[in-house]
């Protein structure tokens, strides 16, 4: 049987993201210690598109929060381009599941915000933001407020808002899961097209295995919580450029899907059993 497990290339490049022995614990209100993540070792190279999949509540988002610098690990450390991360990650941007857009700002103000925060002159920031607004297909909507846009259009604003900063790391936390199926595959394709022009590494969190495989270079499977850790690491060498809506019918895609799903299924069942044990206890 052909092994498709990912093996780190034997080059001595410093990875863009490196998690070494990372664990994250919380103190529960009952006074007990709750372990979300343990013994996470992960290297993401420059320009790689890596997806993190796992059952609900397994700590995917916590991993992302650690890389973004919103939270600090309880043990181990996070290295960004070789140096330990303290505080907010200065080279990352994030597209969240819910809205990124500031409802009190127009599209152009939303997109240019990052530049403005870094002290770029308004006229220059607007000029560059206008290019990005056009790139994500929102020309003509510069002066609309987010409440006047559809969910898919707001996601486009969010993408432009992040990518205008030319982040070395693009974090995506279930970014497209709130969109309807059609908008979603359009956005996925667009993300791949825009990403291909950049050198950003992407850390994509999703519970949708198909989405993970069709977008990524690597798919990482986490075990069910508590104390989730990495179970599998798969190299998806499907050719690029990919068409997200068609690649799902590709034979190799289905093989990947079957193999990773074998890994993932046990974890999903485990987390499901736990959830039900929890609710029956509560009753």
């Amino acid at each position: 049987m052909k092994s498709i497990r990912y093996e780190a290339p034997m080059v001595h490049n410093t990875p863009v993201i490196e998690l070494r022995g990372v664990a994250k614990q919380f103190l529960k209100p009952s006074g007990e210690l709750h372990t979300v993540l343990q013994n996470i070792n992960l290297r993401v190279e420059k320009g790689q598109f890596v997806s993190l999949v796992g059952p609900t509540g397994c700590g995917k988002s916590t991993t992302l929060n650690l890389v973004a610098g919103f939270e600090q690990p309880t043990a181990g450390s996070v290295f960004i381009k070789g140096s330990p991360l303290t505080g907010i990650n200065p080279v990352a941007a994030c597209v969240f599941q819910t809205d990124n857009t500031f409802p009190w700002k127009t599209v152009i103000d939303n997109v240019s915000l990052g530049l403005r925060l870094h002290g770029v002159k308004k006229s220059e920031a607007y000029a560059r933001a206008a290019e990005w607004v056009e790139k994500v297909g929102l020309k003509g909507f510069e002066h609309h407020y987010p409440s006047q846009l559809s969910g898919g259009m707001r996601k486009r604003v969010a993408l432009a808002q992040c990518l205008i900063m030319q982040p070395e790391i693009l974090l995506m936390d279930e970014s497209f899961s709130a969109l309807d199926v059609h908008t979603r595959s359009v956005m996925e394709n667009e993300l791949l097209n825009i990403w291909a022009e950049t050198e950003s590494s992407v850390l994509f969190i999703t519970h949708d295995l198909e989405e993970a495989i069709s977008l990524s270079d690597r798919v990482i499977v986490l075990t069910a919580g508590p104390g989730a850790t990495i179970k599998g690491d798969y190299w998806i060498d499907l050719p690029r450029p990919r068409n997200v809506s068609e690649i799902r019918f590709d034979r190799r895609f289905m093989e990947f899907h079957e193999q990773i799903w074998n890994d993932l299924r046990d974890e999903v069942l485990a987390s499901y059993a736990q959830f039900h044990a929890g609710t029956t206890h509560a009753h």
């Binding site: 919103f70 941007a93 994030c94 969240f96 809205d99 990124n100 500031f102 990052g114 925060l117």
Partner: peptide, 17 residues
């Protein structure tokens, strides 16, 4: 919204901003 605060921080906002 926690996400909006986090988003602004990642985009480079300091406390005043």
């Amino acid at each position: 919204d926690r996400n909006l605060v986090n988003n602004a921080l990642l985009l480079g906002a300091n406390k005043r901003q």
